[in-house]
């Protein structure tokens, strides 16, 4: 199965949760926010959330800005 992760195709296991995804990209959940198909996913759902094929996923963090 594949998802669109930050605009790029990304292979993922259909059983993978958001927690598994974050492990794969090596970033802690406390440092990100996640949107799937333009809806924000609350942190408490990171363990239970299951992706569907072609989900558009945005994983964002804070960068420098004015």
């Amino acid at each position: 199965m594949q998802i669109q992760l930050n605009g790029k195709k990304f292979k993922i296991n259909s059983k993978d949760s958001i927690v598994n995804l974050l492990k794969k990209i090596n970033i802690k959940s406390s440092k990100v926010a996640i949107e799937v198909n333009k809806a924000v996913v609350p942190k408490e759902k990171y363990k239970s959330f299951k992706f569907k094929n072609n989900d558009k996923v945005e994983v964002v963090t804070f960068i420098g800005g004015g």
């Binding site: 992760l5 090596n26 945005e58 964002v60 963090t61 800005g65």
Partner: peptide
Amino acid sequence: VAVRRVNVLDKNEPLLM
């Protein structure tokens, strides 16, 4: 601070946090 995509290609990129 600004909100931007995490760089998924560079797993070791430093973070502001």
